[in-house]
Design a protein around this nucleic acid. Sequence first.
DNA 1: AAGGTGACAGTTT
DNA 2: TAAACTGCCACCT
Length: 111
Amino acid sequence: MKNRDFFKDVYEVVRLIPTGKVTSYGAIARYLGASRSSRLVGYAMNASHEQAEYVPAHRVLNRNGLLTGKHHFSHPNEMQELLEKEGLIIENEQVKDFSNHFWDPNETLKL
DNA sequence: AAGGTGACAGTTT
DNA sequence: TAAACTGCCACCT
């Protein structure tokens, strides 16, 4: 087996994100003890749609609450629509009141 | 096998 | 204050 454990963990955490909540790549990375590997989280999301289990990648944004990965969805607007569908408000490619809807795995799941 | 890539984030100018 | 630079490390070609 390979180091797929990292990706696997990422997907698992992402699936734990409650509907209507969002988190950041960095938060996930830190929860996994890889605070310096935030890019890998994004990289993992890149392959998220290949996973058998559904991964709500649209709930993962960068630390600014910006929908950086929207372009990687089937349709660029899909990410925004999904978020709005969950009750979030997207304004200028960014989640409005981001901090209020922010879900931190470190806080909720705790170590 | 080796080097380049990136859905980030923190630091520096 | 905002923009630019650098570190980061598993994955892909």
